[in-house]
Design a protein around this nucleic acid. Sequence first.
DNA 1: TCGCTGCTGGGGCGCGAAAA
DNA 2: TTTTCGCGCCCCAGCAGCGA
Length: 384
Amino acid sequence: MSEEMNSRSIVIGERLKKAREALGYTQEKVAEKLNIGRPRYSDIENGKRDIPLKELYSFCEFFGRPLEYFLKEKLAVDSGFKVLFRKTEGDQEVAKVITEFETLCEKMYTLEEIADIKIRPSISKDYAYEKDRLLFWGKFYAKQERQRLNLGQASIRNLDQILEEKCALKIFYLPIPAERGIFGMFTYDEEMGGCVLINTNANFGKQLFSLAHEYAHFIFHKERLGIVSSEKEKDTSDESLADNFAGDFLMPEESVNDIFNIRIKNRKDLTAEDTIYFAEYFGVSFQAMVYRLNNLKLLSNDMKEKLISETWVNTVRRSMGISEPESRPKFSSLYFHLCLKAYQQNKITTSKLAEFLELPLYQAMELGRKIKRSVQDDECLDNF
DNA sequence: TCGCTGCTGGGGCGCGAAAA
DNA sequence: TTTTCGCGCCCCAGCAGCGA
């Protein structure tokens, strides 16, 4: 084996090991699935044996990773996902989602490199807090962040765009099986910056809340390599702080009070219709709105319990002319923009464009033609 | 203690080069 | 053209070390 081949085999072997451990498989299981002997697979992982291209494709397919993952000299997220992997040990469905999340982050990083645009968070502020005053600090920093980002008191439905543009967060959307109780994930890496994954199986209101929640992790808990925001962990102090922050950030007390005073005035308690109106105004879920109104003492405990148990909320929403928006694209507008920019500058081929956007080649060719014809970036974005 | 991993030795198989 | 030989690759069995 030549020296070059040897170093390549070592890199591939290390990536194979990471990919295998990410899915919680043993060497024996992988070897069995791929129909090779375990010692041979062990040798491959240890870089002692070169891998034929055909076999490498099988590995890509089996681990759900692009070929680049095994061949690239340097990965952006070589260390950043380790903790996430450990946290989801044994749950291969979730492990697969995380693998896809990692792949998306890696693609984003590659695109930034190709387009020569490195977008990194500029936050250097110290977000210190005391663990016994989480309500206070959540509210305090939510207000500060709104000011810092010039958001005023208005509702922020386009939070993903704001966080991408102003905080350089990388945001992706993927479905995670509902029964796992996972709403979002966050990971941070010096090289990559902050990366967020939102579960698209939740409704849009819940997704917005999860995004604000993950943003809280970004500002408070960057030192933790990976965070899975789930039902199981909701009572931990980090999760409580993130929830408090998200509630205050999305539904500022002043705004809620203002609307309450205009709409409700002299009435004794809110109705389900009122709560739906509030939720729609702030873009959050009905449930989040109920809890927020209750926390602000604008909704009695009895009414809170009654509203939370209601099953006809969606029927009322529809009768009020409110419908759930269509499904969300997996990629952010920034990711899409970087793809188009790289293609426009002839830095990626049509097949690469297809790969980055996960499109069939013919669609990528059509898009490519539009990009080439188009004079302005915006025009081609609108046309697609 | 058990499961996982790394490592070694023995043996089989296929392929290419050299010899008959 | 056929046979032989060397080499590389592979599999299997088994042992030792490590960590939970």
